[in-house]
């Protein structure tokens, strides 16, 4: 089987996109920790539930950013294909 240069680049782009999505591990762990602490805070002080929830969501959204950078790289590798030549 002969693989042309173009096909090789496409295959490598697909593999690279898959590797880029490993970045999704970090935000998952971080958001889980934030949610856990948020839940324990609500358990301790149920009166401040709305404040705690909004702070938690804001922090989670900021923590999500790095994962989304990985997602952007994956999308670019898959659909924009900058190395197509």
């Amino acid at each position: 089987m002969n693989i042309s240069g173009q096909e090789f680049i496409q295959a490598m782009s697909a593999i690279g996109a898959g590797i880029a999505m490993i970045a999704g591990v970090g935000p998952g762990v971080g958001q889980g920790i934030a949610a856990g602490h948020g839940a324990s805070a609500v358990g301790r002080n149920p009166g401040a539930k709305s404040d705690i929830t909004s702070t938690m969501l804001l922090g989670q959204a900021v923590a999500e950013t790095t994962g989304l950078y990985g997602f952007a790289v994956a999308i670019i590798l898959m659909f924009v294909q900058p190395f197509k030549g």
């Binding site: 959204a61 999500e64 950013t65 989304l68 950078y69 997602f71 952007a72 999308i75």
Partner: peptide, 8 residues
């Protein structure tokens, strides 16, 4: 990028 990434 945050907004784009989430919706995309």
């Amino acid at each position: 990028l945050r907004l784009f990434g989430n919706v995309m």
